[in-house]
Amino acid sequence: MKQMNQLTLGVGLKDDATFANYFAGKNSLLLEELNKSACGRGERVIYFYGTGGQGSTHLLQACCHKANEQQLRSVYIPLASIMDLSPDIFEGLETLQLVCIDDVHMIAGKPLWEEAFFHVYNRLHAHGGHLIATANVAPKLLGFTLPDVISRLSWGIVFQLQPLTDDEKLQVLMMRAERRGMTLSEEVGKFILTHCPRHMSTLFAALDALDKMSLAAQRKLTIPFVKTVLEI
């Protein structure tokens, strides 16, 4: 069932989307609770929210990887990518131990989707499964037309993702570069942070481009090289 759902959605889990590859910063308590839930323990419902680029998708996929390691059946559902499908995708999910739903705000104001989500929540709860959901705002601000959905999402624990500081983002970039066999000095890292948008996804994309070009050109990561590659 786990593989069938994931394949049917056409969404694969990224291999590097693990808890070990996530810099927690001030979100260590959230990671602790997610880890327990992914192992079939702890809170049955976890809801966390934050702005784009803070790693919500990474964390949900990390939960599924962890569940797979524990031989638990799980599925990751990215609502923002599958709104052209039918709400029927929620059918049968109560047979899984873990259901991770990304971007719940996408179905706000869509009655058929809200109702389908409400029913799968109830069925999953009745079967003893775990639900982890993300959105861009707190539950009470989602704008759902079904008030019962909001109350259900608030039954468990709710976290707001705390953004990384610039110093923490620099640490993340340097750690990621090191794992790739790159040498990223603090000076060059600070230059990238100063001249690039500071969403982690954007910073990672910049690092990916630098990795590719430095290998091709056999160049070290210097400020002049970074300027050329990133056109800044």
Rank of each mutant, 00 (worst) to 15 (best):
V120N: 01
L85M: 15
S214G: 05
F19E: 09
S86P: 00
E186L: 14
L30E: 04
V229T: 08
R41L: 10
Q54G: 00
T134K: 11
R179C: 13
A80G: 05
R123G: 04
L153Y: 02
M200C: 09
A126R: 13
K212D: 09
L131S: 08
L173V: 13
L142G: 07
K14L: 13
L173I: 12
K140P: 00
P111V: 05
F48N: 03
R73A: 11
V75N: 04
D148G: 05
G181Q: 09
L142M: 12
M213N: 05
R41G: 00
R219K: 15
D84H: 15
M174A: 07
G25I: 09
W155Q: 11
G12M: 11
N21E: 10
D84N: 14
Y22V: 10
A17P: 02
T18V: 11
F19Y: 13
I82L: 10
Q171D: 14
I132L: 10
R198G: 06
K220C: 00
H119V: 13
K169D: 06
L93M: 14
F225D: 02
P111E: 10
M106V: 12
H130S: 15
I89G: 05
L173R: 08
E187Y: 09
Q160H: 07
M106C: 13
F225T: 06
S201F: 10
L146S: 05
G128N: 08
D208F: 07
G189L: 09
F90E: 00
I157P: 01
V226D: 04
Q171N: 13
I192G: 07
S154H: 02
A209I: 10
L79D: 03
G189R: 09
A205H: 12
S37E: 03
A80W: 03
G55W: 02
C39E: 11
A177T: 13
